[in-house]
């Protein structure tokens, strides 16, 4: 099992390096510090979303509502800034809203036992509905100048703020998963939840916190998105939902649960970001990006499932031609 996982990460890493080499050959401006920094800027928003999604998928769950939570957060931040006039309070309220949304998912999944895909299919629509009702379907854009720091500011001259936030969160999540008892429980639940119960793991508690964690990540992502585009709108973040799940799976997290690393997810996110940025520099139609992102996902998984495919082909040939 470990062998398979390692080979997946190796294939992905080779794929990623190959991609970088091709891009830098085709577009000379690709391999410059400034461009690479802007790649990290572009990947931070859905990278943060993907951190939460990774932890959830490790528990063999899925969260379709993270995009809607991000959108709702942008509205909560904008409206609570309008009432309170305090930016810090507004952002904290936004993150609290994300945590509450995650807790709502978590209670239904962990305490009542509804399958995660069904719960989050419902809450995806529900949270988006709340955001639409609150904002009456409008975009809100009366933010103060300081709000734009998280999405448009730079630290130490030219390092984008959201890159730093993403890196810090990625390292924290990685440590949380690999160095804490909670992290081990997350893997245990995903591997075999029945066995986890019998080893004394409080599965419902672990799951509840996992969904709250993803809610908080989605909220942070929403905060950065609205800071970058200087607006709050209910549908911000929706486009990143499928991308963040795809990047997580591309990064080697097994959709059936039990395995996956934050390192893999970061590489998965990077592959998508490099593809988007590089193709843009080469001047390929943005329509081709969708196509290539989908292809990248399928191709990497095909390569890492090669042994299964070979076995099936041999059986097929034996049955039909012998």
């Amino acid at each position: 099992m470990i062998g398979i996982k390692r080979s997946h990460e190796l294939i992905l890493l080779l794929f990623f390096i190959g991609l970088i080499i091709i891009m830098s050959l085709l577009a000379p401006s690709f391999l410059t510090i400034n461009n690479l920094l802007s790649v990290t800027q572009q990947m931070s928003e859905f990278g943060i979303l993907a951190l939460g999604v990774t932890v959830i998928i490790i528990t063999s769950g899925i969260d379709l509502s993270v995009g809607s939570i991000a959108g709702l957060t942008t509205i909560v931040i904008a409206m609570s800034y309008g009432w309170s006039g305090s930016l810090v309070a507004a952002i904290l309220l936004g993150i609290l809203a994300g945590a509450l949304c995650g807790a709502f998912n978590g209670v239904l999944i962990a305490k009542i036992g509804v399958p995660p895909m069904l719960v989050t299919l419902g809450t995806m629509t529900f949270f988006n509905g709340i955001a639409l009702v609150l904002s009456k379907g409008n975009a809100i854009s009366d933010f103060p100048e300081e709000f734009y720091f998280a999405g448009q500011g730079y630290l130490f001259g030219n390092i984008p703020v959201q890159t730093v936030i993403f890196l810090v969160l990625a390292i924290l999540t990685s440590l949380l998963l690999s160095k804490t008892p909670w992290g081990r429980r997350v893997y245990a639940v995903g591997n075999n939840s029945v066995a986890a119960v019998f080893s004394g793991v409080q599965v419902d508690k672990v799951l509840l916190y996992v969904y709250i964690f993803a809610g908080i990540m989605a909220a942070i992502s929403g905060w950065i998105i609205s800071s970058r585009v200087s607006t709050a709108r209910a549908d911000l973040g929706a486009v990143y939902l499928m991308q963040s799940i795809a990047a997580t799976v591309l990064g080697g997290t097994n959709i059936a649960g039990g395995s996956g690393t934050i390192f893999g997810t970061v590489i998965g996110v990077s592959v998508f970001a490099v593809l988007a940025n590089g193709l843009n520099l080469i001047g390929v139609s943005p329509f081709a990006q969708n196509l290539l992102m989908g292809l990248a996902l399928i191709v990497v998984l095909l390569i890492s499932n090669m042994s299964i495919i070979k076995r099936k082909i041999t059986i097929f040939i034996k049955l039909n031609f012998n």
């Binding site: 899925i62 499928m242 799940i245 795809a246 799976v249 959709i255 059936a256 329509f287 081709a288 990006q289 969708n290 196509l291 290539l292 992102m293 989908g294 292809l295 996902l297 399928i298 998984l301 095909l302 499932n305 299964i308």
Partner: peptide, 17 residues
């Protein structure tokens, strides 16, 4: 043997793209 949600997530982008 790739899970259905993963395959169709990929082909969703491939078809549309």
């Amino acid at each position: 043997e790739i899970p259905a949600i993963v395959v169709t997530l990929g082909t969703m982008n491939i078809f549309r793209g």
